[in-house]
């Protein structure tokens, strides 16, 4: 459920005064979003649950310090990303380091690029296929993965993403462009391997 920003601000103020019902409402509002963020970031359901719990424990502990200068979700997402990244540091990286480059459009031009057919949404919702998509996200180094998750999966603005990650908006755009290009290449291989779209 989405609620209006003014309504959310009201709930936040109540939560800051120690209102348990308001805290529950905030947790409930953001559970799915933070879980999905943590799942994509860590690539593991168990880790996602740990990140989810720690994020909200910190939220409850620090909510009185939130000064309403930014939106509540920016503040909460920043906590979740920091918890998630800290969590990742304790785990060995599952994949070999991959090279993330700018799109080589000149090379594409010379390859007689072929269009992809229409998207088959039923195929996308299959768990087996989604696992293949997830494995590509997991191969992205953190600095690209976090930007892709926040900008494209959670549809945050370039500015909010930059604030959360403490980077510049132009750096956010560069990282996003490279992440999208990497995932496109990965998907291109999947398209060739199976008739998915």
């Amino acid at each position: 459920m989405e609620i209006a920003p003014e309504q959310e601000a009201q709930i936040v103020r109540k939560a800051q005064m120690g209102d348990h019902a308001a805290l529950s409402q905030l947790v409930s509002l953001y559970t799915n979003r933070i879980y999905r963020l943590a799942l994509r970031l860590t690539g593991s359901e168990q880790d996602a649950e740990d990140v989810l719990q720690e994020t909200f424990l910190i939220m409850i502990k620090k909510i009185k310090q939130f000064q309403m200068k930014s939106s509540f979700y920016t503040w909460l997402y920043r906590i979740a990303v920091n918890v998630g990244l800290r969590h990742l540091k304790t785990k060995p990286f599952k994949y070999q380091h991959v090279s993330i480059d700018d799109p080589d459009i000149e090379r594409v031009s010379s390859m007689e690029a072929q269009e992809w057919p229409a998207i088959d949404y039923d195929h996308i919702s299959r768990k087996k296929f989604r696992k293949k998509l997830d494995s590509a996200i997991e191969q992205l180094p953190e600095m690209y993965r976090t930007v892709f998750i926040l900008r494209d999966l959670h549809e945050l603005s370039t500015e909010d993403t930059a604030k959360i990650l403490n980077i510049t908006p132009s750096n956010t755009k560069i990282r996003l462009m490279r992440a999208r290009n990497f995932l496109k290449d990965h998907l291109e291989d999947l398209v060739k391997a199976e008739a998915i779209i």
Partner: peptide, 12 residues
């Protein structure tokens, strides 16, 4: 293709 990639990941 980039747009479709984003759309597919969002859907998933």
């Amino acid at each position: 293709k980039i747009k479709k990639t984003v759309e597919i990941y969002q859907k998933a």
